[in-house]
Amino acid sequence: MEGVAFAYDDRARIFSDLNLEVASGVTLLSGENGAGKTTLLKLAAGVERPDAGRVLVNGSDLWRREVAARSDLAFVPQEPDVTPFATIREVLRLVCRLRSQPAQQVDQMLDETDLEDSADLSIRELSRGQRRRVLLAAAWIGTPRTAILDEPTTPTRTASGRGRRAPRSRSSRRPRTTARAIGSTGATEPWTWRDTTGGSSSGCAERTPGCKRHVEEL
């Protein structure tokens, strides 16, 4: 992220001149409630567009080269946000099509996430955990290099008791994934990045009292 500024409206500016680089490997983002972690992940995933600055994913600008930058990116949001006007199978088929993957991956993902019986249901008919599993299934289609998971520790237990089977089984077969940003809450710092390469940085959102307006290298 380079010089990113973002606000939902004029009254609540979340970031201004935010600079951040996430290296390959597993990266953890933690911070107190309201620090702006989810908004940061949404900016990184291309859900929200920054008011200023740019966001690069694997070298591609998310908003100038929209398709190229997102083709190797998966996002699992905190809240399971899937259109109610499609069945689960249709949503996964759409993801397959957009990522240029064979349609057979839909059945494979449904099987791995234990959603075969719910495949023809609307998202409205699923529980919260099942909805989250739908997004996990969508995330692994096409083996994207970058996965952004918001609140990844939310339980996703399957009907057969195979809780969290999908992420674990996929991780062993996913050599292409080089970076994952994971959101969490409850830390004392405003928010902190930690990555497997040993580097870390911290920063804060403007709405958090007493915070500086930029990211500092530790």
Binding site: A45, E66, V67, R70, S71, F75, D81, T83, V95, L98
Partner: peptide, 15 residues
């Protein structure tokens, strides 16, 4: 009747 679908904006299709 069709609200914004925020998550779909992270998929590889252009605005």
């Amino acid at each position: 009747r069709r609200p914004p679908w925020a998550w779909s904006r992270s998929l590889p299709w252009s605005a």
